[in-house]
């Protein structure tokens, strides 16, 4: 299969972003289709950023933040992300985009193996779904 999905990953600086660093230091391997964008906190991620990614050709958006309830470096940004993503998934469904194209995962700074697992399984899932809109870009 020659098609490679385009995926944007928003990782928070403190948990998922730190896990991605650990994954690097540990020389774990994962799929290179995912381009990370580091945000200060998942609470900073606005619905527009996610929708903008899809509108500009992303096939999937992955969000990695700190575990609920207590890990968020900024107290409760992760809960804000949870609620936003939950509503957005409903919106995606209504406009005919598979909600699975948007995924939110809690990944602590120590969970590099989980990060790798999440990234790879997400890429697999998007591969199965194919390109957004069914057309090969």
């Amino acid at each position: 299969m020659s098609w490679r999905p385009k995926i944007i990953a928003f990782f928070c600086r403190w948990c998922a972003g730190a896990a991605a660093e650990v994954a690097g230091v540990s020389r774990l391997r994962y799929d290179p289709s995912v381009v990370p964008i580091i945000v200060p906190c998942t609470g900073r991620i606005s619905p527009s950023m996610i929708v903008e990614a899809f509108l500009n050709g992303a096939d999937g958006v992955l969000i990695g933040g700190c575990h609920t309830p207590n890990d968020c470096h900024y107290v409760a940004g992760n809960f804000k992300a949870f609620k936003r993503v939950y509503l957005l998934k409903k919106l995606l469904q209504e406009v005919g985009v598979e909600p699975e194209r948007l995924r939110l995962e809690w990944i602590s700074a120590t969970e590099a193996p989980k990060l790798v697992k999440v990234v790879n399984s997400f890429v697999d899932e998007i591969r199965k779904l194919g390109p957004l809109g069914g057309k090969h870009a």
Binding site: S48, E52, L55, L91, V95, G133
Partner: peptide, 14 residues
């Protein structure tokens, strides 16, 4: 809206 634009992106009309 962007939601409608996304709808178009996802598969045009239908």
């Amino acid at each position: 809206s962007k939601a409608y634009a996304l709808k178009n992106k996802a598969g045009g009309e239908g």
